[in-house]
Every structure is written in structure tokens, then in C-alpha cells.
Computed example of a mutant assay.
Amino acid sequence: MEFLADYAGFLLKLVSVALVIGFLLAAVAGSKKKSQPGSLSVTKLNEGYDDMKAELDKQLLDKKTLKNLAKEKKKQEKQDKKLHKKSAKEEEPSKKRLYVLDFDGDIKASAVSTMREEITAVLSVAKPEDEVVVRLESGGGVVHGYGLAASQLQRIREAKIPLTVCVDKVAASGGYMMACVADKIIAAPFAILGSIGVVAQVPNVHRLLDKSLIDVELHTAGRYKRTLTMLGKNTDEGREKFKQDLEDTHDLFKRFVSAQRPQLDIENIATGDTWYGSEALDNKLVDVVMTSDAYLVSHYADTEVVQVTYKQPKGMAERLGLSFFSALEQKAVSWVGKLTQSRGY
């Protein structure tokens, strides 16, 4: 038993040392991560669609029909080559491109870090006749995060490139603030849109601490530096100031949406309520009821559809298999954020 106890103690020390080394390596890697460039990948969605169609034809059609299709395809390819040679001499305009970006938003709008790089890349080559489609999914989050995300989309509008936002599941609160920047909003029939409002909640454990004879001192310079706290005693004046801040943020939200979609009856819409796709169309929150898949497929015949994805460089923690701790940290931040979020869209 003494041997087992010593062995258990040795293992505990070994694990502790390994964890400390792991955290130190992760910290060093995190400081170097920003200087490492990410990678940009471009996927031609037309080709994937054509490959799937060809595979289905192969599995479902008889040999004779397949042979006829192959002949027609070769004939069409020859005609395309002739037209291409002729157009090369006549300088025919290049084919329109449709750039597809994906934004999957969390409470902090973390995906804006990759979306900003994707937008920068697209704007470096996009032409006025092209189009950018953002497949957006978000239930909202912090004001500054989604404010930045919406500003990134405004860069596309300012460059005079048509912008379309497709919502298959949800674009609510901060998510809708992003969506409303688009020239055209497309939503699936049961997608959730709206929630033009502001919410904040702050747990307070002052009474519990008071019963335990625990004092909390909070010192500030500035009358409204801290209006509500988690640990100290909150005042009516602090609550009123906090509520006023929420109202001011809500007014800012309404003005922004109104500027982007003046056709909205903002006072009736900006109640924090949500609508499904078909209802959102009736309330002018969206322009078309359709899935993003249907919209993209409708462009495959005459448009080059490409998906642009920017990947952040992997940190040392991920390379060493310590991504578990990173995921745990993100989960904890998300949980605390839901408990203590202030002025969130």
C-alpha cells in the first residue's frame, strides 16, 4: 500500500509538471500565432455540382443514354472551344463570378476575424458585375463584436459590389444587424429573423455575501464608471443609468437598421420579436424566401461560383494536442458571457 501511495504521488507530480509545461508552450505559441500568416482556399462549387450530376447519371442511366450524353458533351466542348478562340480575339467580357462566404456567429462574433480576411481577398479581385453571397447564421451577441461584423460587410457595399445575405436557420439580433447591410436578403421558409432589441443581465450575489459577513469594496473614479456589479450592493441610480444605456443602444440599433432598410416600419418591428421566413417577407425584413442552396444552384449555369475560406494558422497548443484546454476555455467564456452579458444584440 505504501508503494502504491508513493506511485500515485509520483504520477500526480508527473501530470502536474506536464500540464504546466503544456500551458507554458501554449502561451508562447499564442504570442507567436499572430505573426504567422493564414491560408486562403478557393473551391469552385460549379465543379462539385457537375461531378455529383455526372455520378448520378452514371449510376441511374443506361449505357446507351450515357453514350449519347457523352457525345453531346464532346460536341458542346468543341463549340465552347471555338467560341473561346473567337472571343479571345474580340475580347469578350469575362464570366461573372459569385463569391460565397460563410459566417457562423457565436456570442462574441468570433468569426469576424476570418471573414475580414476573406472580404479583403475578394475585394482585391471582384468587379462591379460580380456578386458576394454571405451564408449567415447567428442568434446575436455582444454589441461591439457584431458592430464590427456589420462594418466588414459594409466594405462590400462601399466597393459597389452587389451583396446578398442568405439565412437558412437564424439571423436574429446582431445577426440581423449584419444581414440588413445586404442589397438583398434571402431567407429559408422557416428561418428565424428579427429580434431587433437589446438585452443585458447581471447576476448579483451581494445578499449571499452579506449573510456570510463578507464585504466587497468597489472604488471608481467617475460617477458612472460602474453602474451594476455582481458582488456589491446595486443602487436605484445605477439601475436607471444601466437601463438608459440599454435604451440608447437600442435607439442606435434601430437607426442603423432603418438606414439600411428604409422600407421597414421600424417602430413596429423593433420590439425584440422574431418572425419566420415567410412572415419576415410580409414584414419586409427579407426580400426573397428561398434556401441558399436553391439560390446558388440557380447561378451554376451562367456564373462561376467560388467559395472563399480563410483558415487561421494553428497554434502550438493545437499542434501539441492541447486543443482540449482551448475548447474548455472557450466554453467557460461562453457560459460566463451568457450569465453576465451587457448590452448585447
Rank of each mutant, 00 (worst) to 15 (best):
E137W: 07
S113W: 14
I107P: 09
V142E: 09
E117N: 14
S151D: 15
G145T: 03
L153P: 06
A149T: 06
V125R: 07
T164Y: 09
L136W: 00
V170F: 07
R157K: 15
R135H: 05
L148H: 04
V142L: 10
I161L: 06
D130V: 00
P162F: 00
A111F: 15
S138M: 05
V170I: 14
E158K: 15
V167S: 02
Q154S: 13
A109I: 07
Y146M: 06
R157I: 13
L153M: 11
H144G: 11
Y146F: 11
G140M: 08
A126R: 02
S113A: 13
H144T: 14
V143C: 13
V125N: 02
G141V: 00
L123V: 03
V142R: 13
E137H: 10
K108N: 12
E117Q: 12
R157P: 13
S110H: 13
H144P: 05
A111Q: 12
S151F: 10
Q154F: 06
A149F: 11
E118D: 11
M115G: 00
L148V: 10
G141M: 03
T114L: 12
R116K: 15
I119V: 14
V170N: 05
H144R: 14
V134Y: 03
A109D: 03
K160Y: 10
Q154H: 09
L153K: 01
M115F: 03
I119A: 02
T114K: 15
L123Y: 01
V167A: 02
V112A: 08
G147W: 01
G139C: 12
A149C: 11
A121P: 04
G140Y: 01
I119D: 11
G147P: 01
